[in-house]
């Protein structure tokens, strides 16, 4: 079934989140690159330049750079501009983990083989606006679906 895939993940911060897939193979420096009021990524060197984190499920390797990025994640949440959930594909860094912990943003880690599945799916469905992901950090799985009804 092409449009329903379920993969396992590891829970870092619990909760259940749903949103559109925002996939990046590049890390993010939250403090430097993200507008905390809008959730928009502003860095001409980044592939997600001008895209927004708001209400999406961010899939990225890990955060880099400033230790203050943890506060950026918290500010995004307070400003209703945060991603609904985050999936780290490399290693979960301390900035993302601590930022999500105080913001109650579900955060999970996926291993290499599951990352490949997700990557293939994102290439296939990359331009499909109906692609939604559900991150169920409580039960440690990611479920995605391009059915409009979810």
């Amino acid at each position: 079934m092409k449009n329903r895939i379920k993969i396992e993940c590891k829970r870092i911060v619990g909760g259940i989140a749903k949103g559109k897939l925002l996939f990046s193979d590049q890390p993010l420096n939250f403090l430097a690159m993200v507008n905390v009021k809008t959730g928009q990524i502003n860095d001409i060197h980044h592939k997600l330049n001008n895209q927004t984190l708001k209400n999406n499920i961010l899939v990225f390797p890990n955060a880099i750079g400033s230790s203050v990025g943890a506060y950026t994640i918290f500010s995004l949440k307070n400003n209703n501009a945060s991603p609904n959930g985050i999936i780290c594909t490399n290693s979960v860094d301390i900035t993302t983990a601590s930022g999500c912990a105080i913001s109650n943003i579900p955060l999970v880690h996926i291993n290499k083989s599951n990352f490949e599945k997700l990557n293939n799916y994102s290439i296939e469905e990359g331009n499909n606006n109906n692609t939604k992901i559900i991150v169920d950090a409580e039960n440690e799985f990611i479920f995605f679906n391009n059915d409009k009804s979810i």
Binding site: K10, R11, I12, L31, V36, S66, S67, V68, A70, Y71, T72, F74, S75, K77, N78, N79, C88, S91, V92, D93, I94, T96, A97, L107, H109
Partner: peptide
């Protein structure tokens, strides 16, 4: 959980960032 630690250990010194209002804002 993120770094696969088994337990906590004591530390002797912490250095805290997130002080500049320009960076942490009202939420901070």
């Amino acid at each position: 959980e993120a770094t696969n630690a088994q337990y906590l250990i004591p530390i002797e010194w912490a250095h805290v960032s997130g002080v500049n209002y320009n960076t942490i804002g009202d939420s901070g």
